[in-house]
C-alpha cells in the first residue's frame, strides 16, 4: 500500500476577511528553524499594504460601533477558534522557532490565555481610563476613551505567536483596526491567527495580516497618512527611522521595548486610545 501524499497548505495574506495571494504574484520561501523549506508565503506589495489600510479604515467604525460587550465576545470567540486549532499552532511554533514541543505548547496556551485576557478588557477600558472630572462650574464633565483608528503593527520578529498576540490584540480590544506586518522570517503563526480571526466573528478588515519583506513594507506603513498609530515592537534597527516617519502625520508611535507583560499590555492599550472630554452645561 502506497503512503498517502500529504496535502500541503498555501499560506496567503489575510486581507479584509479574505485570503488572497499578493496582487504582485510574488511569494518568498519561509525556512524552519533548521533552515529547511517550510512553506512559501505571499510576499505582499505596497499595493497590498494600501489595500489593507483601506480595509482597516472601512472596518474600524463598525468594530468600534459594536457594543463593548459584543467586542469582548468576538475576541473570546477568537480564543475559542485558537483553542480548537491548538495542535496546528504548536506544530508551527515548533517549526518556526525551533523550540521543544513542550515549550511551544506552553507558548500557545499562554497566547490563547492572553487573547481571553484581552477579550475581558473591551468593556473595562472606558471605566478604567475614562471618568468624570469635578470642574469648578455648572458643567457635567466626562472623559471617554476612544480608539485612535487604524494601527499599523510591526510584529516581533522572534516571538512569532505570543509577541504577535500582544501587539495585535491590544489595539483591537480598544476598538482599533489593525494592519500587521508579520515576522518576516516566521510569518506562519501570524497567518494562522489571521485565519482564526477571520473565521471567528471578527468583522472583515479589523485584522489584516501581511507577510513579506519588512524593509519594503514597513516604511510605507509608517508613511501612510491614513494610519493613526504604529507599534514598532518588531522593527529592530528600523525602529528609529520608522518612528521618525510616523511624524509625517503625527502618528501615535509605540517604539519601546516592553518590560513586564501586563504593564506593557496596558501601555499598548493606552497607546492607541484617545481621550475625548465632553463638557455639558447643567441648568434648569
Amino acid at each position: 500500500m502506497s503512503e498517502r501524499l500529504g496535502v500541503r497548505k498555501t499560506y496567503k495574506l489575510v486581507l479584509n476577511g479574505a485570503f488572497p495571494r499578493s496582487e504582485s504574484g510574488r511569494s518568498y520561501e519561509v525556512l524552519d528553524a533548521a533552515g529547511a523549506l517550510l512553506a512559501n508565503a505571499a510576499q505582499a506589495s505596497r499595493k497590498d499594504l494600501r489595500d489593507a489600510v483601506r480595509a482597516a479604515r472601512a472596518a474600524q467604525p463598525g468594530w468600534w460601533g459594536a457594543s463593548a460587550y459584543n467586542r469582548g465576545q468576538v475576541l473570546y470567540r477568537v480564543a475559542e477558534m485558537a483553542e480548537a486549532r491548538r495542535e496546528e499552532l504548536v506544530d508551527q511554533v515548533v517549526a518556526a522557532e525551533g523550540v521543544e514541543r513542550v515549550h511551544a505548547t506552553a507558548t500557545v496556551e499562554r497566547a490563547i490565555d492572553r487573547i481571553v485576557w484581552f477579550a475581558g478588557w473591551t468593556d473595562k477600558i472606558a471605566q478604567v481610563y475614562g471618568g468624570t472630572n469635578p470642574v469648578a462650574g455648572p458643567y457635567f464633565n466626562f472623559s471617554i476613551p476612544s480608539p485612535s483608528g487604524v494601527v499599523g503593527v510591526v510584529a516581533p520578529a522572534e516571538d512569532s505567536l505570543l509577541g504577535l498576540v500582544e501587539t495585535v490584540m491590544a489595539p483591537i480590544c480598544a476598538g482599533n483596526a489593525v494592519v500587521v506586518l508579520a515576522s518576516e522570517t516566521r510569518p506562519i503563526p501570524a497567518v494562522l491567527l489571521g485565519e482564526m480571526a477571520a473565521t471567528s466573528d471578527l468583522p472583515a478588515g479589523v485584522l489584516n495580516v501581511l507577510t513579506g519583506r519588512l524593509a519594503e513594507l514597513a516604511p510605507v506603513l509608517a508613511d501612510h497618512e491614513d494610519v493613526d498609530g504604529l507599534d514598532l515592537a518588531g522593527a529592530g534597527e528600523m525602529r528609529a527611522d520608522l518612528a521618525a516617519r510616523g511624524a509625517g502625520s503625527i502618528k501615535r508611535v509605540l517604539a519601546d521595548d516592553p518590560r513586564d507583560p501586563d504593564a506593557a499590555a496596558l501601555r499598548r492599550i493606552r497607546a492607541f486610545l484617545e481621550t475625548t472630554t465632553v463638557w455639558h452645561t447643567i441648568g434648569q
Binding site: G137, S148, S249, R252, T277
Partner: peptide, 30 residues
C-alpha cells in the same frame, strides 16, 4: 479631544485637554 456642549472655551485643571490626529497626542489636565 474636547467637545463643549452649549458652552465653549472652558478650561479646568481637572479636565483633560489635548488633541487627536494632527492636533497632537497626550493630555494636559486631570
Amino acid at each position: 479631544g474636547v467637545v463643549w456642549a452649549n458652552t465653549y472655551n472652558k478650561f479646568d485643571p481637572t479636565s483633560p485637554f489635548g488633541g487627536v490626529r494632527e492636533s497632537g497626542f497626550g493630555r494636559e489636565g486631570g
